[in-house]
Design a protein around this nucleic acid. Structure first.
Length: 257
DNA sequence: ATGGCCGGGAAGCCCGGA
């Protein structure tokens, strides 16, 4: 059977609730990983989503960050945060097993600016994310907002952006470290050529001018990659009224009955 | 050339985002 899974940074799940419900009714995926929910667990709008047949597994905090999984299939072995506890006061990682696959739903720190200490924390967070993803024999899928464009086709102006946050060589090296470890950037397996974006700045008419970046990634371990049947970006919600600045990335994964 | 927008929470601005 095919398991359908998606990742979407919604930039506040409460502000985007109508978009999430609309999108799920049009794209009834089995698993939807959310980032930047920006809400404590007690205020997560679970009842509205239960009406669509989805249960919510949440790891939130007030105002900032927050990850959650909406699912209509059973999740097992849920845990939150990096194993070391690094940046444990920020809700950025939610891991679970589904149909024999270990998923990591990740919201990587933005880093602010390459000159700031926050940027070094981002690099270390990425290093620890890889260690966590590489620590199990299960097939692994890491999906979420990586806040890094892996290569020149993943951003609108690579020459201008070279060395700036989300396109600094040290960040791209961290993505390369995933690939060297055997992880595969699944979107590029199915769409190897051409510019492709998942995020467009709210400012400057960036979406209208298609000045975006591909920051939302699906990385699959060596044993998970052959299970993939397709990956696509859905740019549509970026054109809806009061959108998130990110759009969903969907994938089809073949799993045993 | 520059900057242009959001959300949350507090407060009538500031932080953080990317």
């Amino acid at each position: 059977m095919i398991l359908t899974a998606a990742t979407w940074n919604v930039n506040s799940v409460r502000a985007r609730l109508s978009h999430v419900t609309r999108w799920l009714s049009e794209n009834p995926v089995d698993v939807l990983c959310l980032q930047e929910t920006k809400v404590t667990d007690d205020l997560f709008p679970g009842d509205e989503l239960a009406g669509l047949g989805y249960s919510a597994t949440v790891h939130g905090q007030k105002s900032y960050n927050g990850v959650a999984v909406l699912s209509r299939v059973t999740l097992e072995d849920v845990f939150t945060g990096l194993p070391s506890g690094f940046l444990g006061d920020q809700a950025r990682l939610l891991s679970f097993r589904c149909r024999g696959i270990r998923f990591l739903n990740a919201y990587v720190p933005n880093g602010g600016d390459v000159a700031l200490p926050a940027f070094e924390l981002k690099l270390r967070w990425l290093t620890e994310l890889l260690a966590a993803a590489d620590s199990t024999a299960e097939p692994v899928i890491v999906m979420g907002d990586f806040n890094v464009a892996p290569g020149p086709d993943d951003t609108h102006s690579p020459e201008e952006q070279e060395g700036s946050v989300c396109y600094h060589p040290h960040e791209r090296e961290r993505i390369q470290a995933f690939l060297h470890t055997g992880f595969v950037d699944m979107f590029r397996v199915f769409h190897p050529e051409g510019k492709a974006y998942t995020w467009w700045d709210y400012r400057a008419g960036a979406f209208r001018r298609n000045m975006g970046m591909r920051l939302d990634l699906v990385l699959a371990s060596q044993t998970a990659a052959p299970l993939f049947r397709g990956v696509k970006i859905d740019p549509e919600p970026r054109g809806w009224d009061k959108p998130s600045d990110h759009v969903p990335v969907l994938c089809d994964v073949e799993v045993p009955e």
